[in-house]
C-alpha cells in the first residue's frame, strides 16, 4: 500500500471505529433542516424559496464545526510530529487527510441531502442542483478549513477559532453555492464553485503544511 493510500485508509478506519462521532455532523445538518419549518412556519412556498440558503447554511456550519478534528487527534498523540519524517512530503500528508476529511464530513451531507429536501419541500430538480452544488462547493470549504485547522492546531482549546478565521474565505463558496440553487440561475455559479474548489484544493495543502511547520516550532 502506498503511503498516501495508507493515510487515507487509516483516517477512514479510525472514523469507522469512532462510531457515533462520525454521525454528529450529519445529524447537525439534518437538525437545521428539521427545525427550520418550525421557526419560519409551515408555508410550503416560503420554505421552498428559503431552502437553498438553508441547505447551504446547514452544510457550511456543520463543515466548520468538524474542522477542528482534521489535525487534532494526530497532534494530541504525537502522530503529526512523526509524520514529518514520513516518506512523503507534509503537503501530501495534508492532502491525504483533507481527502479523507471530505469523504467523512462532506460526503455524508450529500447522502443526507434528500432528507433535507423533503423537510424543506424542495422539488426534485432543485434537490438535484443542490446536490451538485454541494458536490462542487464542499471541497473548497474543506480546503479553506484545513488551513484554519492547521493554524489553530497548536492551540489547546482552539475549538472554533479556525472556523472563525476561515469564515471570510469561505463566504464566496456560500454565495455561489446558494446562487447555483436559486431558481432561474444559470450554470455560471456552478462553474465558479468548481473553480473555487479546484484552486483551493490545489493551494491549501501547501498553506496548511506551512502553518503546521511554523506551528510546531
Amino acid at each position: 500500500m502506498s503511503a498516501f493510500a495508507a493515510l487515507l485508509v487509516r483516517d477512514l478506519r479510525l472514523a469507522g471505529r469512532g462510531g457515533a462521532d462520525a454521525l454528529t455532523l450529519v445529524l447537525f445538518f439534518v437538525m437545521v433542516g428539521a427545525v427550520t419549518p418550525f421557526a419560519v412556519g409551515p408555508d410550503r412556498v416560503l420554505l421552498a424559496r428559503l431552502a437553498p440558503g438553508i441547505v447551504w447554511i446547514a452544510a457550511f456550519l456543520s463543515l466548520l464545526l468538524g474542522l477542528d478534528r482534521l489535525f487534532r487527534a494526530d497532534e494530541d498523540d504525537g502522530t503529526l510530529l512523526l509524520l514529518r519524517q514520513a516518506a512523503l512530503p507534509l503537503e501530501a500528508v495534508v492532502f491525504a487527510k483533507l481527502l479523507a476529511h471530505w469523504l467523512l464530513t462532506a460526503l455524508p451531507l450529500l447522502v443526507a441531502s434528500p432528507l433535507l429536501a423533503i423537510l424543506l419541500s424542495m422539488d426534485m430538480d432543485v434537490w438535484a442542483r443542490t446536490a451538485l452544488a454541494l458536490l462542487l462547493g464542499t471541497p473548497a470549504l474543506a480546503a479553506f478549513g484545513a488551513v484554519g485547522a492547521a493554524v489553530t492546531v497548536g492551540l489547546r482549546r482552539g475549538g472554533l477559532l479556525g472556523p472563525v478565521l476561515m469564515l471570510p474565505l469561505s463566504v464566496p463558496v456560500l454565495i455561489f453555492g446558494a446562487g447555483a440553487i436559486a431558481p432561474g440561475s444559470g450554470d455560471a455559479a456552478l462553474l465558479f464553485l468548481a473553480a473555487l474548489s479546484l484552486v483551493s484544493v490545489a493551494f491549501c495543502p501547501f498553506a496548511a503544511a506551512l502553518a503546521l511547520r511554523v506551528g510546531s516550532e
Binding site: M1, A3, L7, R10, L14, R17, G18, D77, T79, A86
Partner: peptide, 18 residues
C-alpha cells in the same frame, strides 16, 4: 504516535507504509 482504536499490527502497518 499510537492510535488507540487501531490494533498493534494496524498501527505498525500504517507506519511501515507511510
Amino acid at each position: 504516535g499510537v492510535k488507540a482504536r487501531l490494533t498493534l499490527a494496524e498501527n505498525l502497518d500504517f507506519w511501515r507504509a507511510v
